[in-house]
Write a protein that binds this DNA or RNA. Structure first.
Lengths: 140, 140
DNA sequence: ATGACTGCAAAGACTTTGCATCTTT
DNA sequence: AAAGATGCAAAGTCTTTGCAGTCAT
């Protein structure tokens, strides 16, 4: 039995927040972003809708950075760069994976590959310029 | 001032546990593995030594799977496969990244790239054979 | 009216940390 | 003896969940 899906203003706002930024937000970022316009928004609702959007393929997880899961509303395959200093995540649209890599893994190992992630770690432009921003502990 | 490093039986055992398995263990896995032989081992010690080994380059993090950080004692570059059904992580030594990809990202975007991770997600061999093991919720 | 969605707060899971104690050097 | 390492338990952070009330259909 399919579960009915109903409209919700909060849900709409949460998806809009995800689609309106390129910062690959965490649940808390979305919460803080929307709280002024939706004073009765609750963090639980953000988490529930993030799970909902993932299940429906509207967003995908980019992984956990500094203990917080980060999300991306761009669901077409692309790589990411994570700054170990400030924690920002950036898209790398020009670093595509060879299309057949997933197929290679499937046939070579017998796995049912569903998706793959290519992620680079290091210092972003501004952090590598000002090496002093060591307020935050590097990740690796 | 350099901090001195001293020998410790627990530390040695933790590293041996990491190097003696290919399961990419979590802190808790190591704890449970060593507890019988080291009844007074504490989980905090496992976490502290995992951080220590990372800082010293003896291990690296493979990422967070189902809320638990997983580690790898093989620090040479290689890809991974994560099963969305049972959570196991496997090495893919035969799926190397082009060596110059990191350099490409460095020059093209100006980042100081330190490392990169290529990770595939899907169903492992045994989980794709027995599609019934839906006891655990898939990750994506 | 039904059942999906939400707020709130409590609970859960994983990890970190302070402090007294034990070990290594 | 000095300083690093550990055990223990408390605290911290992020996320999930139960329940009663609200809202969309």
């Amino acid at each position: 039995m399919e579960r009915a899906v109903r409209y919700s203003k909060k849900r709409e706002a949460i998806l809009a927040a995800l689609q309106g930024t390129s910062c690959h937000p965490s649940a808390e970022w979305i919460y803080r972003q929307l709280k002024p316009q939706h004073p009765d928004l609750s963090l639980g609702t953000v988490y529930r809708n993030l799970a909902f959007f993932q299940e429906h393929g509207h967003i995908k997880s980019v992984g956990v950075v500094r203990g917080q899961e980060r999300f991306d509303a761009i669901v077409t395959p692309h790589s990411h760069f994570v700054c170990n200093c400030c924690g920002t995540i950036q898209d790398l649209p020009d670093i595509p994976l060879e299309d057949n890599l997933e197929r290679t893994v499937s046939t070579q190992y017998g796995f049912a590959v569903e998706r793959c992630e290519l992620t680079f770690y290091g210092l972003c432009l501004s952090c590598s310029h000002s090496q002093q921003n060591n307020k935050e502990e590097p990740l690796s």
